[in-house]
């Protein structure tokens, strides 16, 4: 009951924060735009293929089959995978950070713990509020994706289930970042440091690990269609890949999402990849680890602590 009250209070506070709404608006806007961008690109590239075929025929050359003839309907939402990795994760860090630092910023830590409240109650309350907020955001995104697909293309029950699966996985992925934001919010005395550490971890997971492990340049890894990198031809790169790949959480998330949405051409160009079950297992480990960090942060939390510095 106490945890429930804490969770309710955290959500109320979050809904009063302007910066939360700012990032949320960006996320919602990009969710709205992503289906249109996917749809528009798909139509244009089909026309580009037709024009190319006319040119080749006129020159008396063979016309290769269209690489876009069998694209699944859900191909138009493939950009959403990247936006979850970019904006969804940062939104989750901000929400976690806000929940983690709220009591300290308000200077109410001592008052809170002078009541019959345990650290466990507080942690359960904060984690519950974080989960509820992120879950609600994913539900809204799911609704937007379904509505936009229905408007621009067609949607049937199987796609509906695929989208639920995709947003379910996305929820688990961003929850990990939210828990990191929460943990460092509890651990660090300076608000900026508490925000920056999870952002640095996010940079390493999103850009550095895919580059080191799979030779994907930081900006290239943001395209749903991955470039060709034959890293297995290099024994050194292949060895680094084998060592780092299990830790490349963003790659596992992207692969699993592509598998759920049955997308083509988004699979890793590296031939040593894991099955979707293995991807899911690694994402679960990621979530357990980030939860463990939050529990550790709360166990070390100084209940006599005063205000947190801005």
């Amino acid at each position: 009951m106490l945890s429930f009250s804490i969770a309710k209070n955290e959500i109320r506070h979050l809904l009063r924060e302007r910066t939360f709404f700012l990032i949320l608006s960006v996320f919602i806007l990009i969710t709205l735009a992503s289906t249109y961008i996917g749809w528009s690109s798909q139509h244009t590239i089909e026309s580009v293929y037709q024009e190319s075929a006319i040119l080749l025929t006129a020159a008396g050359q063979n016309v290769p089959p269209s690489p876009f003839s069998n694209l699944p309907t859900l191909d138009i939402v493939k950009n959403m995978i990247i936006y979850i990795v970019l904006i969804g994760s940062l939104l989750a860090i901000t929400v976690g950070h806000s929940i983690g630092t709220k009591d300290q910023k308000a200077g109410v830590v001592r008052i809170l713990f002078s009541k019959p409240v345990t650290k466990k109650d507080v942690l359960i309350g904060k984690v519950t509020s974080l989960m509820l907020v992120l879950f609600a955001i994913m539900i809204v995104s799911l609704g937007i994706s379904i509505a936009s697909i229905a408007m621009l293309s067609e949607i049937h029950s199987a796609m509906f289930l695929q989208l639920i699966g995709f947003y379910g996985i996305s929820f688990l992925y961003i929850l990990g970042f939210g828990l990191l934001g929460l943990a460092f919010g509890l651990m660090k005395r300076e608000s900026a440091t508490a925000l920056l550490i999870p952002v640095i971890i996010w940079i390493v997971i999103t850009f550095a690990l895919p580059e080191m492990g799979s030779a994907l340049y930081p900006t290239s890894s943001l395209n749903p269609i991955l470039p060709q990198t034959n890293i297995l031809d290099s024994p050194v790169l292949s060895t680094i890949h084998n060592i780092l790949y299990p830790f490349s959480i963003s790659e596992h998330y992207k692969l699993l999402s592509s598998a759920i949405l049955a997308l083509q051409g988004t699979e890793s160009v590296v031939s040593v990849t894991y099955s979707p079950i293995m991807n899911m297992f690694i994402l679960t480990i990621w979530l357990i680890l980030t939860l463990a960090v939050s529990i550790y942060a709360m166990s070390k939390f100084d209940i006599s602590r005063g205000d947190v510095y801005e």
Binding site: I37, S41, I45, N79, T219, N223
Partner: peptide
């Protein structure tokens, strides 16, 4: 991140690996 990403993914040449 977002604006350059949108530009890149709209590029017809980027729709096929390679």
């Amino acid at each position: 991140l977002v604006l350059p990403q949108i530009g890149d993914t709209m590029d017809p040449d980027n729709q096929v690996p390679g």
